[in-house]
């Protein structure tokens, strides 16, 4: 590993550590936030118990697959909001001209920006995801796959939000669009893909990438399919690449000072 990468990593780790320290100032709030998020997620299981009382499968998923779906969604969403929470609120920084501080630092701007905050309840999401996966009785190979999909899911969530958020370099009000779309994505990601058909299914695989973040991974975990695995990996790389490209394109615009609204 080159020293530059090592140094960057050191800054990132310190950043995450300091983020957590900030939230731990009030320990009670910190712990209740996490534990209530776990309870919160767990309460939704009631819904699935009921639905599986009515039918053997829901949208082609067994109860175990629903647990995997929830596990992956919660864990990826959680991890992305622990490490890269700012990728989910980028428009605010752009509009208020708060990127300046990162631009005078000799580190990668994108990484510095997205690691600069944390959502504490996300720790609860991550833990809940892992607990659910543990209930799924995965074999060693599945665990390795699940870990891989946790990484790709985290990247897909982060990159998708970053992509939308970066549009705020060009357009106003992107914060609302970003927020709503990401929340919508999470909602879809907690239901089986079998209930969606036709156009909506296509949209949910390729435009709002729920399919790539969790549905394909669950299918691969349930029954291994190399093609699907490669699709997920390829799509993740593509999405990550384009979101980074759009961010830097936007950053150039930021540096040219011709943003709408923002100018100091």
């Amino acid at each position: 590993m080159s020293t530059a990468v090592k140094n960057q990593l050191r800054v990132c780790l310190l950043s995450v550590k300091y983020n957590i320290m900030r939230e731990m100032v009030n320990k009670v709030t910190f712990l209740t936030n996490i534990s209530f998020m776990i309870l919160n997620n767990a309460s939704i299981l009631v819904q699935w118990f009921i639905l599986f009382r009515l039918r053997e499968d829901v949208g082609g998923y067994t109860f175990r697959e629903i647990m995997m779906l929830w596990g992956l969604t919660a864990a990826s969403y959680g991890l992305s909001h622990i490490l890269f929470a700012r990728a989910f609120s980028l428009p605010e920084l752009v509009i208020k001209g708060k990127l300046d501080a990162y631009l005078v630092q000799p580190k990668n701007v994108l990484i510095s920006v997205i690691t600069s905050s944390i959502r504490i309840s996300a720790i609860g999401d991550l833990l809940y995801g892992i607990i659910l996966m543990a209930f799924c009785r995965l074999g060693l190979r599945e665990w390795i796959l699940a870990a891989l999909f946790l990484v790709t899911g985290t990247v897909v969530f982060t990159a998708f939000s970053l992509l939308l958020g970066s549009l705020s370099f060009w357009f106003l009000r992107m914060d609302i669009l970003e927020n709503q779309t990401v929340m919508g994505m999470v909602s879809f990601a907690t239901y089986p893909d079998g209930i969606f058909q036709g156009l909506s299914r296509f949209l949910l695989y390729f435009i709002i990438p729920v399919g790539m973040a969790v549905w394909h991974p669950v299918h691969v975990l349930a029954r291994f399919d190399a093609g699907m695995l490669l699709t997920v990996l390829g799509y993740t790389a593509l999405l990550a690449g384009s979101s980074v490209a759009v961010f830097y394109r936007g950053l150039k615009r930021y540096a040219s000072g011709n943003l709408m609204g923002a100018r100091t």
Binding site: L54, R55, G59, Q180, G184, F188, I195
Partner: peptide
């Protein structure tokens, strides 16, 4: 409305399946 719509849309699909 967007969140509301997403939620309802999912349930429409869900019950259509059930």
């Amino acid at each position: 409305f967007f969140s509301y719509f997403v939620f309802i849309y999912i349930f429409v699909k869900l019950w259509e399946y059930m």
